[in-house]
């Protein structure tokens, strides 16, 4: 189970990295929709970084090195 979760973490971060470089996260010249007053790429960028930190935390729980 832990190994599967570790694989999930790696795939999830990989997918996040890929979509960050697509117009889904970094659309040229697009500032809307705003969220809490922040332009689109900024609030989504902050959300993504928080998500990666959460995946890092999960990763430390399920990483195979835990056995060492």
């Amino acid at each position: 189970m832990k190994n599967r979760l570790w694989t999930f973490c790696r795939i999830a971060v990989g997918v996040i990295v890929l979509i960050t470089f697509t117009p889904l996260v970094t659309p040229p010249g697009i500032k809307e929709p705003f969220f809490m007053g922040m332009p689109y790429t900024l609030w989504l960028g902050i959300t993504i970084t928080l998500l990666i930190v959460a995946l890092t935390w999960l990763g430390t729980m399920v990483h195979p090195g835990n056995k060492d």
Partner: peptide
């Protein structure tokens, strides 16, 4: 600049 540094930084921490 957020994507330039913070996104890259978080990928680094993972």
């Amino acid at each position: 600049a957020w994507i330039f540094l913070m996104f890259s930084h978080c990928v680094m921490t993972f």
